[in-house]
Design a protein around this nucleic acid. Sequence first.
DNA 1: TGTTAGCACTCAACCTCTCGGAGTGCTAAT
DNA 2: ATTAGCACTCCGAGAGGTTGAGTGCTAACA
Lengths: 346, 346
Amino acid sequence: MDARKLKILAAVVDNYVKTGEPVGSKTISMLPDIKVSAATVRNDMAILEELGYLEQPHTSAGRIPTFSGYRLYIEEILGQKQTGLAEEERSRLDAMLGDEENLTEELLLQSASTALAEITKCATVVSNFAPKYSVISKVEVIPTGKRLYVVLLITSNGKIKNKACRMEFDLTQEHMDFFQKFMQENLEGVSVAELSEERLSELVTAVGTYMMALSPLIQGICEMSRDLQKNEVYVTGEQNLLTYRDLDKSEIVRFISRKNELQSLLDDSMSGIQVMFGKEGNNFVIGNSSMIVSKYQKGGKAAGSLGVIGPVRLDYAKIIPYIEYFTDKLTRFISEQGEGKEEEET
Amino acid sequence: MDARKLKILAAVVDNYVKTGEPVGSKTISMLPDIKVSAATVRNDMAILEELGYLEQPHTSAGRIPTFSGYRLYIEEILGQKQTGLAEEERSRLDAMLGDEENLTEELLLQSASTALAEITKCATVVSNFAPKYSVISKVEVIPTGKRLYVVLLITSNGKIKNKACRMEFDLTQEHMDFFQKFMQENLEGVSVAELSEERLSELVTAVGTYMMALSPLIQGICEMSRDLQKNEVYVTGEQNLLTYRDLDKSEIVRFISRKNELQSLLDDSMSGIQVMFGKEGNNFVIGNSSMIVSKYQKGGKAAGSLGVIGPVRLDYAKIIPYIEYFTDKLTRFISEQGEGKEEEET
DNA sequence: TGTTAGCACTCAACCTCTCGGAGTGCTAAT
DNA sequence: ATTAGCACTCCGAGAGGTTGAGTGCTAACA
């Protein structure tokens, strides 16, 4: 695989991304940094096709990149890129994030993902790995109607969950005080990760038959803790996907309604930029789509990921730096925020 | 407008809804309850066209209903329908709502809207009018990080809002206790509707310069109260819209991203079934679409609405009873729930 | 041995033309 | 008032032809 072939591959990708049309040998031979004739390019393209990097939609059409072709191209880009973004681009991105007042991790994630969706005209995906170290900091019960109570669960990292529970009968103030005190004592400081069903059912038995009636509340806590342990995945800008002709509309629809399954693709295992192509195995994602994600960190560990989902035909050279910029920013922001918290937790 | 013309109009609508093709005179003349010949039907159709109820896509094609045609048709349906749903259909719908355990108004709304989306293959819209009579029942501040606090607002009808606020400096326990007590005293029992910006800024001044630093928290309450006063509008099943050929895809996309503007169409003014057609003035809705909504009630007043958005070409005769069934159910459910609450509030 | 010009070949895309059929409006008869 | 008959309109599907971009191969060339 000599340098010229790589150059030709890159030219095919660039051109195809730009125009959406198969790229012919003549087009490439006329590029400024290709010094050889169309015939030579043709020979090389035939070889690239044999190697599985290019393909022809039909005889007598130009070539388009295969998934492997894109992969190789992206590796090339990632290998040589060290330039990062121009100053003006960075400030443009910053402007899109909105004012820095009152910023929280969540808000930053949100604005980053909408900004990314707007720039790239793709759907963006954000996931927030359930922090292993967060602990319960508060449990509360609030009556909101006849035999209707809301249980509130607050974690050390500021997540608030609430759940309405219907009871068999009205609770007395005494009941509620007891429950709250009991839960506070038994759950405060308990890591969310440890909040298993068993642990809670232990509590139910500990609470005794007298308090049997409180089990809906405990059930509620159970459900909330399960939610808290789940990685959250949000997708924004799905509409953007509809504008691409090379994505199948009905697949997009299926994807949108099953997007929670994305979770399985986004765990905290890998780090750095990761590019996946649709329908290479994972058969719920959209065929002919690609997903670019990068992780952001918290205390040295992957804390979540941010990325885009779009057609395979994407301007990777532009989009990858954008995503990296945002995840870097998130990592930095969190570490600044985190300082105070770490102290608190020691 | 004699009975036969109405029958013919209805036949055109029925047929067009079923097939999507313009309907010709011959098709209609062969229907069992049309006793006249095709030529007669043609004459009547020409008159119906003159009256603006039918139109021709082009000469020498069949007729399709105009918006007015649909309107008239729907009025007819609404006029004569009193049958309601068959028992089996009702139980089918009930089954789709899931188990009745632990049901809240919100959950019921949610399951009704997903069920409706599934049955009708349309998008469904749900709005929850901000209840005018709900009052603040609890205010709370919880520290969640360095200079980071969450303010919690709970209303008498069980709505919980929370907002993270970044402060200039860390609050002492004393500060927090003061704030909480102060707010509790001044806001508890205050109707959400009265929670204007002015009222809150009065509080800020009342609190004095000493507590000036607490203004981010009060700001937070401000924002939450604004949210609480807003009618909530949710749309589900937008994907379904994409499957209709007679809706413009790009309009759907625009609609999805601007769906919060629906709010303006869904206020608590009217009640009963209401059918609107896209692009008859409201120019943000989807052209050639229709929206059927019905209101559900709480204490005799409209409390929210539930409906579907789909192509104009809808089986109104089926869908309208479905929607009515769900809104009736909601009204009933709420009034059962409400009993306890009303007592509480007196 | 790598590169290039030349040439025959392929195939999608586009245009044009034709033709059938569904449906109409009108008129005259019932 | 209703109907049969008839000439007319126009969409849409299909057939056929042309164009042009692009290819693979071969033979000549450095």
